[in-house]
Amino acid sequence: MTKPLKIVIAGEGGQGVQVIGKTLTVGAFIAGKHTTFIPNYGVEQRGGVSIAFVQISGGEIPFPKFAKADVLVVLCRRAVERTKTYIKPDTLYIYDREQISSRDVEDIECQKIGLDGQEYAKKYLISKVANVIYLSAIVASKKLYSIETVKKALMKEIGDKLLQDQKLHQLNFKAVDAGAKMIEVALKEAGEKVNV
C-alpha cells in the first residue's frame, strides 16, 4: 500500500489558504497522482483560522480527512495553537517568520522551517502572491511534482485572471520560483539534502 502524503495548511481567512490547497490538488491531478482536498469550511471561513487538508498519493486515497500531517504549513500566529493536534514527530513544520516568531513555536517538537514568504512577497513582488510562494514551497519540500506543473495548476485555477493581467501573471510565476528556491535553501541549511 502506498501511503498518501498528508498536508495541512492553516492561516487567516483571506490569506489564500484554500487556494493553496486546491491548487496543490489540481497540480497533483495534472501530474497523474491520486489526490484529495477538503477545506475546513465551518464558521472559520467567515473570519477565523482557515484550514485546508490535502492528500497526494500514488495509490487510492480512501478518506479525505486525517489526524496527523506529514507537512504542516502555518501562516498566522493564532493558527499555531489551532493546528498543534496535527503534529507528529516526523512532521515537517513550515511557518511564516513575519507572522510567527521562533518563540511562538519553541515548544513544537518536530522539524521546523521558518520561511520569509510574506516579507519576500511584499518587498519584491506583491503581498497577495505570498500564498503562491508557500504553494511552491510545499511542492518542492517533498518533490511532489515539478515546478512547471505548479505553474500549469495555477493557470488552470486562476488562468482567466492571469491572462488578462500580464504583470500579475509574471508575479505569480516569480512567486512559484521563489518558493521552491526558499525551501531548498532552508532545508539545505537545516542539513537536509533536496534534489529539486
Binding site: K22, T35, T36, F37
Partner: peptide, 10 residues
Amino acid sequence: DGYLGKTLSE
C-alpha cells in the same frame, strides 16, 4: 455528508 460533497478528488 458534507465531507463527501465538499471534497475535491478524481
